[in-house]
Write a protein that binds this DNA or RNA. Sequence first.
DNA 1: AGCACA
Length: 455
Amino acid sequence: MASVSSQPQFRYTQPPSKVLHLRNLPWECTEEELIELGKPFGKVVNTKCNVGANRNQAFIEFADLNQAIAMISYYASSSEPAQVRGKTVYLQYSNRQEIVNNKTTADVAGNVLLVTIEGTDARLVNIDVLHLVFSAFGFVHKITTFEKTAGFQALVQFSDTETASSAKNALDGRSIPRYLLPENMSPCSLRITYSAHTDLSVKFQSHRSRDYTNPYLPVAPSAIDASGQFGVGLDGKKLEPESNVLLASIENMQYAVTLDVLNQVFSAFGPVQKIAMFDKNGGLQALIQYSDVQTAVVAKEALEGHSIYDGGFCKLHISYSRHTDLSIKINNDRSRDYTIPNPAMVNPQPSILGQQPMQMMGAAVPHQYNGGQFAPNPEQHVMHHQPPAGWGASGPAGPQHMPHMMNNHHPYMPPPGSMPQMGPGMMQQQQHMPGQGGAPQHPGSMPPNRPDQMQ
DNA sequence: AGCACA
């Protein structure tokens, strides 16, 4: 009697099967490539790729056993090994007689990705980081995160299957770039499949779930403290209640910052209604009033931490004011109500205007406020719909997106001439990332995102 | 470089 109990896991000779087991495949291998590989020997009726922990194994099932034998026999005596994408592929008969294609939801493409974040510190990955990473491929509609037996997981919803696929292809198996994670965090890799979901239900904006299509969605009650005034941000930081009035303090004021300069900078995001400047704690502060909260939010997001002039001069720190309507008693060089037509100028533009740095002087803001540009959803305008070269795995057919990445600048930003360090400066940072421009399959390159959005 | 499936 042959031993039934101890079937060795691997044998030098497998009994023939219509199903062939392939290993050492590149992980990008597609079913099409498997079919190409088997076609010369017969009719491939089924395939399965991305098998195994490393996703580098596959199965090919032929219509007829003789076809499988032909393929094995050919490569057994061939001087040229079977290859996929230049990689030698090892073949043998499978120990199964047919491919069971559990075409699970994970295999059928959809617009929602199921992302498993792997690593000891996986659950420390901020939802904003995920947003940033996935935004590199298109507008992210919603993200939910949750804890499952598989670990820390997220569902990431894109507009369409194509965008989701490009993100999946580029990110699956890669690690979250280190610079997006706190320094002491261990690496986190992403495992991505498709979800059966098509539209996630997000009830609240919270540290666990976000709906980027709906800025009006309430912040989760759990994220609002007892005062009801301050929400808790995604990073756990306290948030001031949003306001249509911004409080800007200016540090490192190497150049005079005039009312007109502020007006110019802040008008790039929408009409400025009023500005009031004053000295506080030895520094200059200003209140800038917009007609609506949304515009103020966009302006704050775009400008916070940035400098008016190149070189870190006149760096802006912006918070929400408790004011909602400034009382401008008089129009002068420190306060202005732009809503009043033909204001009586008590002190028409002073001569200090002439001291403005060249950058600011030379740049008339070409697109001041383009009504619809900021509504309804600010997020989509900061998105870059092409993945950067480093993440892209689109293969030779796909266009290279590098130029796109280089010449876009933040749609919210005033033109580069007026705030030079804000557009180009960020791009430079991206260029310095390791892995950029390397082989597409290497992780670690930078999504076209703004690092300063992270916190 | 060695057999999958939520």
